[in-house]
Design a protein around this nucleic acid. Structure first.
Length: 813
RNA sequence: GCAGGUGUGGUGAAAUUGGUAUACACGCCAGCCUUAGGAGCUGGUGUCGCAAGACAUGAGGGUUCGAGUCCCUCCACCUGCACCA
């Protein structure tokens, strides 16, 4: 079998495709559009390993097949290039981050190009380009104007290594997602975006996304964390403590209250608390614990009672003791709870330890006796006017009763927190705000009312200035704060002296809307023109790692909904269909990492076996969304398959040459490949192609038209080889300009089928019979089989099951 | 703990959605061929058995003519969230 020179073939076609602008997407077209998008990469210094392009290969296959199916395809690529690694590199090497970024992009781009990925590079974007981040800043400014942005001094997550504040989304297991350092709580001046205003629609609109995987929708639901309940006021002398509960039906079972150590009730009422010093030292001790220690589920619950005061349970006027305990979180609800130890595990544990009363007010539906803590739904008992009602009914009745008596109200709480949007670092988009003391008194929009003195710098982009030192200051200010010439400015409103905001935006800002920009990448007047938005939005297919399920994908959905509200986009969701790509693990089954020295470089694979072989292998190695270990032998297998395809071209004839069985297989394969690509089942698509090619390898000859169809099916997977062989059939236009084949059901039909014959459900024979025989004919054929007759001798047939073209089952006794 | 998912040969995995379990590939074994290559060809390869056959999809039950697939009870692993009241 002749070898094929992948290197010269691939280089040749990559150059010719670029030259002929094969991938260039036009905005004006009679064709329907298909927008096929990858999550754009952060161009790191180490280049790509073989895992990174897996998703890009998949979208490339979809993009190429959609081109052939008559769609106007948008398949762009760009760079998410702000962020810490480039900045840390700059600190170490004293070079500007943009220098390292440019270098890394060059490496990435070359690595993507040698894989033959059909990107339209004329639409390339880069989040660090001022012409791009102008619109990131613009969107932020629009949010500010509408009161969606506020300045806060609340304690937030602080990474002591990166020396910056972080959002909840930036944590992993209580540690900084970037460097693994446990985060601290630190009070810090910061800009916060009211993403919680969109919590309800972020949750509800998940229902409008049938083409998202359930697992990712579930993760988002959990992340948003909606819970409905009541705010209930407990009187404490002439003061009160408000608690949030999702179980107002258990109010009669409350035996004490707990407030979080950070709750300001303690400080505000020092004189009422007879053991104040004891309480104070408990609070101090708690504050010295790290967040990780505090939230450790295995730790013993601790707390201290506030002596000298009692709370009054509004439903029965019982006096309840009040505790400070760190098992109650300040950041959720009101930072105070009513404890119902009979029906809450945590309260139960605490009550047991401190010997507090446990009062059962819910009985199990089956009336079983309760041992310990009962948290399930049941029937209210010992609960006055709700006794006997189911938990659901009791809840509704109690909420209404509380509202009527004006001691409680219905309340929805979210786990999602507002988005902490400032970073005290250099390499990010400057926040386009200016502080002007003089303008404090006459605000001109909602944002200025909310944040007196802060006004928008309308002169966008606010470009990132050069600095001498990139190091974070550690003081809660960004390195920009040291550049007086930049900080000191004049107020664009009144012309007086003013100062710039020196914090920068988080890494997620630029990636929250980039998909829109590809449609109109060079527009200097608008984020995106109305016409192009209408044509390209939303993204039809979006592919990327599952690690973004609750970060990028929440932020991007939020940003999009905001843009919809201000009329920039016309859809409520940005991504119609979402697929997540499974990791490629190293050959040893671990993650590919420099640390383990197990990284496989795609450059070497392409050099040795070719881009086509690598593409076919990565799609064949397993289900797309699953993590699979790399195996170089598999690439060799893929290459053997390509060799077999190229051998088919050696026996091409002008006339159709396939026998009916092979022709039927060909047409079945057309249908299978087409639907498998749509369903992201690339592994079975390739196995179907292998079966087809193995079958055709046996054939003495193959017709020109028949081979053309095979090549078209191969083309999305192995574009270079398919194009090369296509041209060898004397075609003078690209295979990707050809029309995707359609399966002819008449030809796909089998003439003979294999019928399985079972006796009592056990396979006893296989018969090869003409297709579409009647049930009686099949039954008769089965009965006359030599292998079957012994099984039927001396037996009585009580039932015969016939599945047409498939199986006969005799039930005998 | 909650939510989602997975469990099939030596390995990666298929299975028309209740109808031939292990397709396709990797690996391995035997043989052939050759200007010795990461080559090619032929055959074999779930387990036990000389065979007929029996047994096999994490374990155990059930429904059904028929179960990898549906139902119940467990077990193990992975991912996300987690003292969220």
């Amino acid at each position: 079998m002749p070898d094929y020179n992948h290197e010269s073939i691939e280089k040749k076609w990559q150059a010719l495709w670029q030259e002929s602008s094969l991938y260039k997407t036009t905005n004006i077209s009679q064709k329907p559009k298909f927008y096929c998008l990858d999550m754009f990469p952060y161009p790191s210094g180490t280049g790509l390993h073989v895992g990174h392009p897996k998703g890009y290969i998949a979208t490339d296959i979809v993009a190429r097949s959609k081109m052939m199916q008559g769609f106007n395809v948008l398949h762009p690529m760009g760079w998410d290039a702000f962020g810490l690694p480039a900045e840390n590199y700059a600190i170490k090497n004293k070079t500007h981050p943009s220098v390292a970024v440019a270098k890394n992009i060059e490496v990435y781009k070359r690595q993507l190009e040698i894989l033959g990925l059909a990107f339209d590079w004329s639409r390339e974007i880069n989040t660090t380009d001022p012409e791009y981040y102008k619109w990131t800043q613009w969107a932020f400014a629009e949010m500010f104007k509408r009161g969606l942005v506020y300045e806060s001094h609340e304690p937030i997550n602080w990474c002591p290594t990166c020396q910056t504040g972080l959002a909840n989304e930036d944590l992993e297991d209580g540690k900084c997602e970037r460097c693994g350092t446990p985060v601290e709580k630190k009070p810090l001046r910061q800009w916060v975006i009211r993403i919680t205003d969109y919590a309800e629609s972020l949750l509800a609109d998940l229902e409008t996304l049938p083409d998202w995987e359930d697992s990712i929708k579930e993760m988002q639901k959990n992340w948003l964390g909606k819970s409905e309940g009541s705010l209930v006021k407990f009187a404490v002398g002439d003061k009160s403590i408000e608690v949030f509960t999702t179980r107002p039906d258990t109010l009669f079972g409350a035996t004490y209250l707990v407030i979080a150590p950070e709750h300001n009730f303690v400080n505000d009422n020092q004189n009422l608390i007879s053991n104040f010093s004891e309480v104070e030292s408990y609070i101090k001790a708690v504050k010295n614990k790290s967040d990780l220690d505090r939230t450790d589920l295995n730790k013993d619950k601790s707390g201290v009672e506030l002596q000298g005061i009692k709370a009054i349970n509004p439903v029965n006027n019982e006096e309840l003791p009040i505790f400070v305990a760190d098992y109650v979180l300040a950041s959720y609800g009101t930072g105070a709870i009513m404890a119902v130890p009979a029906h809450d595990e945590r309260d139960f544990e605490f009550a047991t330890k401190y010997n507090l009363p446990i009062k059962q007010v819910v009985a199990p539906l089956d009336n079983a006796s309760v041992d310990g803590c009962f948290t399930d739904y049941g029937l209210a008992c010992d609960s006055d006017f709700i006794t006997g009602l189911s938990t659901v009914e009791a809840k509704t009745k109690m909420i209404a009763w509380l509202e009527e008596k004006n001691i409680g109200q219905k309340q929805t709480n979210w786990r999602l927190k507002d988005w902490v949007f400032s970073r005290q670092r250099y390499w990010g988009e400057p926040i386009p705000l200016i502080f002007c003391e003089h303008c404090k008194s006459n605000p001109s929009n909602k944002g200025e009312e909310l944040n007196p003195g802060w006004i928008i710098d309308e002169n966008l982009p606010v470009t990132l200035p050069k600095v001498d030192h990139y190091e974070p200051t550690g003081t809660g200010e960004s390195p920009l704060a040291n550049i007086d010439s930049w900080v000191d400015t004049t107020c664009p409103r009144c012309g007086g002296t003013a100062k710039r905001e020196t914090n920068t935006m988080p890494q997620w800002a630029g990636s929250s809307w980039y998909y829109l920009r590809y449609a109109d990448p060079h527009n200097s007047q608008e984020l995106i023109s109305k016409d192009l938005e209408k044509y390209w939005n939303p993204v039809d297919l979006y592919v990327g790692g599952a690690e973004h399920a609750t970060r990028h994908l929440i932020y991007a959905r939020f940003w999009h909904k905001f843009l919809q509200d201000i009329g920039v986009v016309s859809s409520s969701e940005p991504f119609k269909k979402l697929r997540h790509v499974g990791l490629v693990l190293a050959e040893d089954g671990r993650k590919m990492s420099k640390r383990w020295n197990n990284v496989v470089n795609p450059d070497a694979v392409v050099a040795d076996f070719g881009a086509d072989a690598m593409r076919v292998y990565e799609m064949f190695m397993g289900p797309f969304d699953q993590a699979v270990a790399w195996n170089t032998n598999g690439v060799i297998g893929a290459r053997k398959f390509l060799l077999k395809i190229s051998a088919l071209a050696d026996k091409v004839t002008n006339e159709p040459a396939l026998n009916p069985a092979s022709l039927s297989l060909l047409h079945k394969t057309i249908a299978k490949i087409t639907s498998d690509i749509d369903n992201f089942k690339f592994n079975t698509a390739i196995s179907a192609l292998m079966i087809l090619v193995n079958n055709l390898t046996e054939a003495p000859a193959i017709g020109r038209h028949e081979l053309s169809i095979v090549l078209q099916l191969v083309a999305p997977f192995a574009p270079h080889l398919a194009e090369e062989l296509w041209q060898s059939l004397n075609n003078d236009t690209s295979i990707f300009k050809s029309i995707w084949p359609t399966s002819n059901p008449e030809l796909a039909r089998d003439e003979t089928v294999t019928i399985t014959v079972q006796i009592n459900g056990k396979v006893r024979d296989q018969l090869s019979l003409p297709a579409d025989l009647s049930n009686e004919e099949v039954e008769a054929a089965a009965k006359s089989s030599e292998k079957i007759q012994p099984w039927l001798a001396d037996k009585q047939i009580v039932k015969v099951v016939v599945i047409p073209n498939r199986l006969v089952n005799f039930v005998v006794v």
